[in-house]
Design a protein around this nucleic acid. Sequence first.
RNA 1: UCCCCGGUAGCUCAGUAGGUAGAGCAGGUGGCUGUUAACCACCCUGUCGGCAGUUCGAGUCUGUCCCGGGGAGCCA
Length: 466
Amino acid sequence: MERGEKIKALLASATARDAVCICGWIRQKRISKGIIFFNINDGSCLAGIQAVADESLTGFEELKKLAIGSSVRVRGRLAESPGQGQKYEIQAMAVDIFGDCDEDYPLQKKKHSFEFLRSIAHLRMRTNSFGAVFRVRNAAAYAIHEFFQENGFYYIHTPIITGSDCEGAGEMFHVTTMPLESIPMTRSASGAMGVDFSQDFFRTHAGLTVSGQLEGELFAMALSEIYTFGPTFRAENSNTPRHAAEFWMIEPEMAFYDLDDNIALAQRFIKQVTARVRDRCSEDLAFFAERIDPTLMDRLDAIDRHDFEVLTYTNAVRLLKESGKAFEFPVSWGMDLQTEHERYLTEELIRKPTFVRDYPLEIKAFYMRRSDDGRTVGAMDLLVPRIGEIIGGSQREERLDVLKEMIRSKGLDEAVYWWYIDTRRFGTAPHAGFGLGFERLLQYLTGMANIRDVIPFPRTPGNCEF
RNA sequence: UCCCCGGUAGCUCAGUAGGUAGAGCAGGUGGCUGUUAACCACCCUGUCGGCAGUUCGAGUCUGUCCCGGGGAGCCA
């Protein structure tokens, strides 16, 4: 069918011209005597185009009644606009109505709260804010693939359904075909009753992945530099503006990288992705800076201009203690940094993205490489103002004996990780990687305060509609 | 899951010392106008989150439940 051009292309046109055609949805309508002004948006860019219909147009009376939200095709002449506020407008010569819009259309010519728009997530992408969010989301995803592809990384699809239920990253959603009203039970060797997974689809317990890291490491041991970019699931009952039960995570994993290389890669990655999104979504980002977060542009400039701070955990603890600030949780070496500590560090003391590295061994996962001091591991988190942890990564423990020791000391079962441990027997190599929360990055890039507003259909405790 | 705040018209909110509800926007009608958050006039709209209680009387007070937001924990 004839769908004409994208509005973005018309608005960027070098000259006025005849015989243009656009399809889109009516965002605004103003009626004057013998003339109607429509603002029509097709999502190709933030701005819509003004279409002008005068009473000589066939169907003029119908157009007067056309409601906001209706979809139309407009054919006419692209002309320089005599009015203020736009360079071009379309002087309509024919308007086809695809679909009128019922009068109870919830999107009105007014501001809506994000909370309300969440309740109509099937329509919210038609607003300026959410159109911009999802264009930025697209641009960021594309820039992420570009970064890795340009640097020789291979995109690996790690499984969504996974058999090991103790990767340690979080609570798993169960995946089963067993009847929920009568789950088969069996008595284990120790005499306790438990679910009889031998009757389940996979003949074992299965869940949705909480991380593709372990599988990613296997591929790094063959293709050297790989990344994953896919959905991740956490069944934690987390109710915060930066947690979702389903989110997208980027997990690069690199052979022959140590922690320094890992940190350098993460910084280069954030800088390039940010630069490309700014380049391609300048209009949308300007909108966020104006309407959502006035500090946005300064923050993005800082990413471009300065190197991120790198701080050891030990020094971070020292800085926090020396600050003299009274925290709810007093700082001491060995404890995990609380949100209040992270925020004070990034928002008050350092005021830019900060890597904190070399965390105490006791508070980190089994796969992180034990340092020579015997009490820290080669872990690194990238903390950013407002959002907190955006990246968590580490150099991985490549030494077979140390890895086994770590698994045991964390009370985990070696047997479950037999395939992971195998890589340490068959040509083990130093390697490192990190996980980046895609939505948290988007929050940082857009200034959107709630993770539920940077993902199309947010899944959070008690919310699985749409 | 814990702590705090909130739930009043389709939306955003106001509602004073308990006396049975209002403004803007949206919608409708008319007017004016190359308009652009259009403008002007008039009209319409409510189980005041649910349930129970105190009271002659509850949107307003109490209890409880549900939902939302913020903070915390967990983490990406």
